[in-house]
Design a binder for these strands. Sequence first.
DNA 1: AACTCGGGGCA
DNA 2: TGCCCAGAGTT
Length: 214
Amino acid sequence: MRVTKRRSDIIELLKKEYWYAKAELDFTNPYELLVATILSAQSTDIQVNKVTKELFIVGGTPEKMSDMSVEELENRIKSIGLYKNKAKNLLAMSKILLDDYNGKVPESIEELLQLPGVGRKTANVVVSNAFNIPAIAVDTHVFRVSNRLGLVDANNVIDTEKQLMQVINRDDWSKLHHCLIFHGRRVCKARNPLCSNCSFTDKCKYYKKLPKKI
DNA sequence: AACTCGGGGCA
DNA sequence: TGCCCAGAGTT
């Protein structure tokens, strides 16, 4: 796909506006990154960071994780919510890593997707950050913002992924991912977006479609 | 496609 | 108090 000037303008402005953008979860060890990403689902990042770092004191490897009872793990991650599903999945996943992958994290999206609790977003986060495999993690913010702005025109996550990979230079994938998330959280919110505070309205497809306020 | 999991942060 | 949240699994 040819990158239009309008799109490249938006990309440059995103990078400028959110020059400080980076992941809140800064785990580089593949297993820790995998666990942290699973824990972060639908939860507040600051709390997840705290809980995850404490968890890794006792569970930073699949072996150590498997030493914990489901009750202990639940209690350790309780404060981030959705804890029963996450605890169950983390223990099941760690067992699979030990049984089938020699305690290592598999390095392909397809294998990661087979693990319990690992979906498209988590798999892409892990391979792109830990294994340098080209992938863009499309979460709710990335999906919503990139479609609203008109960086892509997609009605599902996979198409959004593919189109973003065409539109954005690979060197910028990680950076832009975080820019889109920051913009989505602070300005381009799912409900009641703060368009009056937004720097992109003159280029935004979504804004152009909004009914004019009197 | 809709529903469920969920405690904590914040207005 | 009510609303919201860097997803994934189940029905």
